[in-house]
Amino acid sequence: MNLYMFQMLVIFVGMATLEVVTPGKGGGKRSRTRGVKWWNLAHTQHFMSDSLLNPETPLFINPSLQPLTRKQRRLVTRNPGTSIAIAKAARMAVDECQRQFSTRRWNCPVYDASHGSSIFGKVVRKGIRECAFIYAIMSAALAHSIARSCAEGSIYTCTCGRHSRRLANSVQPRDWEWGGCSDNAEFGRKFSHDFIDVAEKGRDLKCLMNLHNSEAGRTQVSSEMSKECKCHGMSGSCTVKTCWMKLPMFGRVGKVVKDRFDGASQVEQGNGAINRSKNRFNLIPINTNHKPPEPKDLVYFERSPTFCTKDPSIGHTGTHGRPCNASSIGVEGCDLLCCGRGYRSELYTARERCNCIFHWCCKVTCDTCTKTKVRHICL
């Protein structure tokens, strides 16, 4: 038996012994969150782990991958190089969630998940729209990260993506040709589907909601691909122009998913059959005047709490102590963010760069100035 076969054997033995499955009736709370523990890879201690960033570290002794389920670890084993992309996706999704909701009452807080819980807390157990966004952004981030990693050559089982069939079959004359390396959105979407949806085994409304929102996130990533080109020729001329398909910066995807969050549909489960293979989850809007949710729409079935005060049922601490904008009437304004409780103002000293001078070539020097500013804090 050679070294490679020995390592593969130990990997599968490790996968069989690392995971402890707790039996539950109808998918209990503990089993419900088992498949999303990979989100915990977003934590700094996991993301910056030397063993995770070292592709030579065998997966069966890699402590950073223990949040994965047995099937998820098996998928990673079959696709060497994906472990780093998964950790990057988790960090990227958490950062984008907190950026999009930084001025909202629910500002996408994360918690210590050392005891095996979700880093997003108990919110993920609810059928509210905030949970819908979490599932969509995490799924989108994984599809995006895997697609980019394929194009970069860091995953051994995928390469550059296929060119756009719509553009390739176009009969219109064009002054460019295919070249470069497209992001492999097709592989990214499939990997995200196989990695995330495997944990959703139920047929209840919460399970269908999670599946729909995860697919909505992946669909959004694929639909945001665009053509990018580069000119070739002497002295900057464009004698030959090659083009490839590229995904946008993830912030663009996050903004669109956030728009879907604002327009999410409250749904209930219909009476018809469920065809999971075609992502037809038979979810119908509660408001009969609304159209059925489309593939990119986010769905929920429970109304969100106000997030104004501490709520142990979802693990939220409320908006007490949050900074607010006293001059704004928007969601970041003190009236809305502080939920009518009022706010206090305080002075603080800030150090800023000032009097910056550009020196040819190419240096910028600045002074450090001290200013007194006012900030407002929710009561």
Score class of each variant (00 low, 15 high):
K230A: 07
Y135C: 02
Y135T: 02
P23Y: 08
S226H: 11
G35H: 03
F101M: 05
S118V: 07
D204F: 09
P312H: 14
R32F: 15
I377Y: 14
L75T: 08
V123N: 06
D112N: 07
D367S: 08
R322A: 15
G153F: 08
G272S: 12
N325Q: 11
L167K: 05
L3N: 00
K373F: 11
K371Y: 14
Q7Y: 10
N213W: 10
C181V: 03
M225Y: 11
L208K: 02
K363M: 10
D194Q: 08
C378F: 13
V331S: 15
R129L: 05
A326D: 15
H320C: 10
M8N: 06
K190N: 10
N279W: 06
C150H: 04
D262T: 08
P292H: 02
A89H: 01
R189E: 05
G263N: 14
Y343M: 13
P293C: 03
R148N: 08
D311T: 14
N54C: 12
A113T: 03
N62G: 02
S237F: 11
T239K: 11
F301I: 10
H320M: 11
G127N: 01
V20W: 10
E19C: 07
I377W: 14
K246D: 06
C207Y: 10
R105G: 07
N275Q: 10
I84W: 07
I329Q: 14
R341V: 04
L65C: 04
C131W: 01
